[in-house]
């Protein structure tokens, strides 16, 4: 008998769950975590509008009287504009270069048969195990020996090869239906035309996703630029944050100014993430 009542009760429970969204704990949890994660930035933004005395009045979290003056000052007087430009150039070159180089490699790995293919693929993947710190001393010496120190080449060259990009593009190319590939083969379409007219248009989502990931990654680099760029004019914005730390008067650090710099530094990757969230999530296997 009890078995029957259970059977009767179960379907109505499901209907209840779907019709009445009693999800307030879920919403509360989400809003709480999101606020917790966002609060440092919200506070940083508020304080970036404050004057030095306002900042030192710790519990004052109202909008400051400096308005956006700190931003203007940090961009001009403290050279953040030129650091950001340097970062932008570096990130765009790395993004375009890495994707171009990886596209070519993925075409070779997927659409050709040749000796040592697996060995080469392994060599490319294994680079994941040797991040910059593992090879930083010789890499630095190499740049010095080639006269690349303080150049865009040194900032971008070491980032061109990418195991992740080659791997993801290879997976994507492999998922293209056989018959499409064979159709191109029957038409005698050459590899570069195939890449340009078929593969790239068919991989737009994947390429934009990789583009955002690479852009954010390049923009956020800190250690390598710190070492290889000693000329402050050529420095990127992340290291520019370090220069900003010493800003202040009469022993009082101008934190409002520094927070303005931090907000500015965050802005480009954040905008990229929000604008390209679709392809980004798709690339990570999370289609919207």
């Amino acid at each position: 008998m009890s078995h029957e009542t259970q059977d009767d009760a179960a379907p109505s429970a499901i209907t209840d769950a779907t019709l009445v969204p009693e999800q307030w704990p879920v919403h509360a949890g989400l809003i709480g975590s999101i606020l917790l994660m966002a609060s440092p930035l919200l506070l940083a933004f508020v304080m970036s509008t404050q004057t030095v005395p306002e900042v030192y009045d710790i519990t004052n979290i109202g909008a400051g009287s400096d308005g956006l003056a700190n931003y203007l000052e940090v961009l001009t007087t403290y050279e953040m504009a030129s650091y950001m430009l340097n970062s932008l150039v570096m990130s765009v070159v790395v993004t375009v270069g890495k994707i171009a180089v990886s596209l070519l490699a993925a075409v070779a790995l997927v659409f050709y048969r040749f000796r040592f293919k697996n060995a080469i693929f392994f060599l490319i993947l294994f680079t994941l195990m040797v991040p910059v710190p593992v090879r930083i001393v010789p890499l630095y010496e190499l740049m010095a020996a080639w006269g690349w120190s303080n150049t865009l080449l040194a900032l971008t060259g070491p980032y061109l090869a990418s195991a992740t990009a080659v791997f993801l593009l290879r997976q994507h190319f492999l998922s293209i239906p056989d018959s499409l590939v064979e159709s191109a083969k029957l038409d005698g379409v050459g590899p570069l035309r195939f890449l340009w007219d078929v593969l790239i248009p068919m991989s737009r989502g994947m390429i934009s996703g990789l583009g955002v990931i690479t852009f954010i990654y390049a923009w956020n680099q800190y250690l390598w630029p710190l070492i290889v760029i000693s000329d402050q004019n050529k420095q990127v914005v992340q290291v520019g944050m370090k220069y900003l730390q010493s800003v202040g008067n009469a022993g009082q650090t101008d934190w409002g100014l520094i927070m303005a710099g931090a907000v500015l530094t965050l802005l480009p990757p954040l905008v990229a993430l929000i604008a390209f969230r679709g392809p980004l999530l798709e690339t990570f296997g999370l289609a919207e």
Binding site: P177, S179, L180, E182, S183, K185
Partner: peptide, 17 residues
């Protein structure tokens, strides 16, 4: 090579780009 055989193929899955 297939491109030089002057044959055209129609696939079960249509193979449209």
């Amino acid at each position: 090579p297939p491109g030089d055989r002057d044959v055209a193929m129609v696939f079960q899955s249509y193979a449209l780009y």
